[in-house]
């Protein structure tokens, strides 16, 4: 009886897991399959024509990269510096580091459309940037900041205490210890977090529509408006009749980029854990007992 239940449960769990994998695999392959036929050199190198129905997406790729660049330039130094402070602090309940971390948790969960509202009110209107690459990039910077800080802080904390003891016993200053010992040891983990942040920024749509805008032209400067790839997918699918083909192609390209980025993050993460402990990241200890 008991073993029958056991088998039944195994079967249910197994089929649920298989269903999840099958559906997720279906989505992924479907997107790639539908779009891959339209991908060509012309698609990458030419500007869109006929509201995007023909031609390519070259200026859109340029805008996407410019927005990403602005976001990273703003967010990376701030996140590194903030994470350095948080990683050195014990997060005592209601201490400043604890409060700062909780604020960042909430910031991480703010819906992207709300970031769009904020970015529009703050960067576009209050700071007078208008719909621009700069406003969009800075809005994205606010969005990815909590992820970057979180992963960087984890990376810094994963550096073995041995290193800190050795550094302290040699009378090294905290500044030297951080830049010469902790930071280099945590670098792969930090890079993995950075790559994830880039992925999140590339995927973002709702926060950009009302900050970076949706002009398909190539932006002349950072103050010009530009359309990201994700916004292009939305516009082609929803607002342009018969735009599906180009939407699919852009989606396939975006997903392919994200796949590469994901692979990069994984190899960096495994490099990080190998560097610090010589083990793989998976901790499967509890498995053997069940």
């Amino acid at each position: 009886m008991n073993s029958l239940t056991d088998r039944l449960v195994s079967l249910m769990i197994g089929s649920a897991a298989a269903l999840v994998a099958a559906v997720l695999g279906w989505v992924l392959l479907d997107i790639l399959y539908r779009g891959i036929g339209d991908l060509s050199w012309e698609f990458l190198a030419q500007p869109p024509e006929d509201a995007g129905r023909s031609g390519g997406i070259a200026p859109i790729i340029v805008s996407t990269m410019l927005i990403l660049m602005v976001a990273l330039i703003a967010a990376v130094p701030l996140s590194l510096s903030a994470a350095a402070a948080l990683a050195q602090q014990r997060h005592r309940r209601f201490g400043w580091a604890w409060i700062a971390s909780r604020c960042l948790d909430v910031l991480a969960a703010v819906p992207s459309v709300v970031f769009g509202l904020f970015g529009n009110a703050f960067f576009c209107v209050a700071l007078g940037m208008g719909y621009s690459i700069l406003a969009g990039g800075l809005t994205l910077a606010c969005m990815i900041l909590p992820i970057l800080i979180h992963t960087t802080e984890h990376g810094l904390r994963a550096v073995p205490a041995d290193y800190h003891y050795a550094a302290a016993s040699l009378g090294l200053s905290r500044t030297t210890t951080f830049f010469r010992i902790t930071l280099p040891a945590a670098l792969p983990a930090i890079a993995a977090g950075l790559v994830l942040g880039i992925g999140r920024a590339l995927a973002e749509t709702a926060a950009l529509i009302f900050t970076a805008g949706y002009v398909t032209r190539q932006p002349e400067s950072l103050m010009g408006s530009g359309r990201s790839m994700s916004v292009h997918i939305f516009d082609m699918a929803m607002n342009v009749p018969a735009g599906d083909g180009r939407a699919n192609a852009t989606a396939a390209l975006l997903v392919a980029m994200l796949l590469i980025i994901n692979a990069a993050a994984m190899s960096l993460a495994s490099k990080a854990s190998a560097k610090l402990s010589g083990q793989t990241a998976e901790d499967m200890n509890s498995r053997q007992y069940v």
Binding site: V20, A21, L24, G25, V27, L28, D30, I31, L196, G199, R200, L202, A203, E204, T205, A206, S230, V231, I233, F234, A237, A247, N248, A251, L254, V255, L258, L259, I261, N262
Partner: peptide, 16 residues
């Protein structure tokens, strides 16, 4: 696979 899917843009899910 699951981590990968968490990174797929919502606009792509919408399109699909």
């Amino acid at each position: 696979l699951i981590e990968l899917l968490s990174g797929i843009p919502s606009v792509v899910f919408g399109l699909w």
